[in-house]
Design a binder for these strands. Structure first.
Lengths: 202, 202
DNA sequence: ACATTAATCGAACGTTCGTTTAGGCTTCGG
DNA sequence: CCGAAGCCTAAACGAACGTTCGATTAATGT
């Protein structure tokens, strides 16, 4: 490999290689079940280097949280599939790299402060989106706009958290899908019908 | 001769005390983050006794899965709150004892075979319930009854899995609620509106 | 009364955990 | 050239992990 611009190996990449490996393993097995040694092996570095860079294992977890949160903040609408508009191209970044959405799904259920803040932001954004929809006549009015937005967000993110079950039941992988495929999928079809008409006959 | 020898101490059942402690701690901290020693201390028994009864820690986890699954099977409709009918009295058992719903919420996201089977059952039951609703004219028809049932189940269970966020956003604790309170809650109100009318203006 | 069996404890096993400490290399400014 | 600085490794620490083994106690069958 050619590396001459940076000191040892790849400099800027080592830290992010650790981060990527950590996100992958945390997403796959959970944080508590993943040891620093396994992460180090996956990143091809020495375990103590992780401590050197991130201080502690929990520091690494926080760094992962922040990294994923930063990414999701840039692609909020795409993550909230069932209630938003789609920009398929923006999700291309998800196809490669560490499984950020699977990591998010993990931490949604595990509960981290950063994820909680992220969810709060998404709900507030959803309130705005839905208000725009109401103003343009596309979305029904409601007496409880905040609660409606919160519930839509919960349902979207809950489905993401249970993506294994969604995959098994509906054959759709919510963590590995771009927006177009989501709308054309079984999940998207059923969601459109439910949110379009409701279930109860009027 | 079949069942019991109740030799030592008081112990209505030491085994079930261990099970209850394990469910509580697993629900609170996750399986991987909970040690057998902590469970043993909570159940006030010696750690090796857990191994003696359940063979291995994973055997204990499986026993917890089965125990929770058995309980949920008896109260299926109550767990699937947003899509079903309610029998408030049947949930009284949840107020005391180990936090079975919190444990279920954990394993829904963590993924265990028993939980997956349980979810599959609930979806199939929901198909039946919804078909009855259609027959009685209460529920809209659909071209995709299975997908609709699956998605409703996913949303209900997903909200349960994200109960911490639901609590924070809507002030409702889905793991500690009986059916009536669920319908009167912010969550129930928003869910009724969404599933009743949909969001999109027709 | 005695042998049997189940229930429970106490102590230790070997492993893995997260972390610490010390020190090699490499690169580079003076 | 040299010493400082940064990247990274090697070896080891104490604690906690899941588990094993053997002994002790109490109920049961005969």
């Amino acid at each position: 490999m050619s590396d001459e611009s940076r000191p040892r190996g790849d400099k800027s990449s080592t830290k992010s290689r650790i981060l990527a490996a950590a996100i992958t393993l945390f997403a796959d097995q959970g944080v508590a079940a993943t040891g620093v040694r396994a992460i180090a092996a996956a990143a091809d570095v020495h375990p103590s280097l992780i401590i050197h860079y991130f201080g502690t294992k929990d520091g690494l977890r926080v760094a992962c949280d922040k990294h994923v949160a930063a990414f999701v903040r840039e692609h909020k609408q795409q993550v909230m599939r069932s209630a938003g508009r789609f920009d398929p191209a923006a999700l291309r970044d998800l196809q490669d790299g560490p499984p950020l959405l699977r990591y998010l799904a993990r931490t949604l259920a595990d509960g981290s402060p950063h994820t909680a803040a992220l969810v709060d932001e998404m709900v507030n954004d959803a309130v705005g989106y839905l208000a725009e929809g109401v103003a343009s006549g596309l979305v029904r009015e409601t007496d409880y706009p905040y609660e409606r937005a919160a519930l839509l967000a919960i349902w979207s993110l809950g489905a993401l958290a249970l993506h294994e079950h969604v995959q098994r039941l509906l054959g759709v992988d919510l963590t590995n899908l771009d927006g177009v495929a989501a709308m054309e999928s079984t999940y998207g079809r059923a969601a459109s019908e439910l949110l379009g008409n409701g279930i109860y006959r009027t």
